[in-house]
């Protein structure tokens, strides 16, 4: 299989731009793993993905991992799954906990940054840190995705280079994880927005 055979029937304007693009993804859980799979399928040239966690059984309800990957670092399991779909993508994975210091170092070359953390405090840290170091780079975050239904309440709020996808109000109930369908809507909107912004920046 050649690259041109694999990437047939692609958008002649957008696809070459996506091939040249580098997207950073902070977190490889319910949001990050699904965003990564979507961007890999679309033909993004390179993904830089970081996550400190390992795959657990409870993740399989919403994250892009398989039963036989339980116990593996999420970034390694995700790289395996992405390569099964798109063997041509360049992947840079980091099994570590992001903080104010390494965010600047790891994501220097990204064209678009995706926030895919689970806790509100980590989301806030990333937004404050990334916006300070890379004020001219788009940052696509997620906030408010718990539960099911209410698809129509999920929207995108924009402030300069910061985009927030979600309903900005749904709280997780204690002991209950996000649910696959609604978190996938948010992940898909983050990925779709990233694809749109890459084209917009180059046109």
């Amino acid at each position: 299989m050649t690259l041109s055979e694999y990437f047939c029937e692609r958008d002649p304007i957008a696809f070459p731009l996506w091939q040249k693009a580098v997207v950073g993804i902070a977190g490889a859980g319910g949001l990050g793993s699904n965003v990564a799979m979507l961007l890999a399928r679309a033909g993004i040239g390179k993904l830089i993905i970081s996550d400190f966690d390992i795959v657990s059984l409870s993740n399989l309800g919403r994250q892009a991992f398989n039963l036989d990957q339980v116990g593996l670092p999420k970034v390694e399991a995700l790289a395996q799954n992405i390569r099964k779909v798109n063997p041509f993508i360049e992947l840079e994975i980091h099994k570590l906990c992001l903080d104010a210091d390494n965010i600047q170092e790891l994501f220097q070359e990204v064209d678009i940054m995706i926030e895919a953390f689970d806790t509100a405090s980590a989301k806030t840290m990333l937004i404050e840190c990334f916006s300070q170091h890379f004020p001219d780079t788009d940052l696509i975050c997620a906030s408010g995705l718990a539960g099911y239904g209410k698809s129509e309440e999920i929207r995108i709020v924009r402030a300069g280079k910061l985009f927030v996808v979600g309903d900005q109000c749904s709280q997780l109930s204690p002991g209950i994880s996000p649910i696959s369908a609604r978190i996938m809507i948010v992940a898909a909107m983050q990925a779709n927005l990233a694809l749109e912004r890459i084209v917009w920046k180059n046109s």
Binding site: G30, E128, V157, L172, I183
Partner: peptide
């Protein structure tokens, strides 16, 4: 930055966006 909420003054006519960050991801 959060640490600067009490010391950052807002200019007249400014547009503030306050985003609520909620856990889940």
């Amino acid at each position: 930055l959060r640490a600067d909420y009490g010391s950052t003054t807002i200019p007249n006519g400014a547009e503030l966006l306050v985003i609520h960050l909620i856990s889940g991801g």
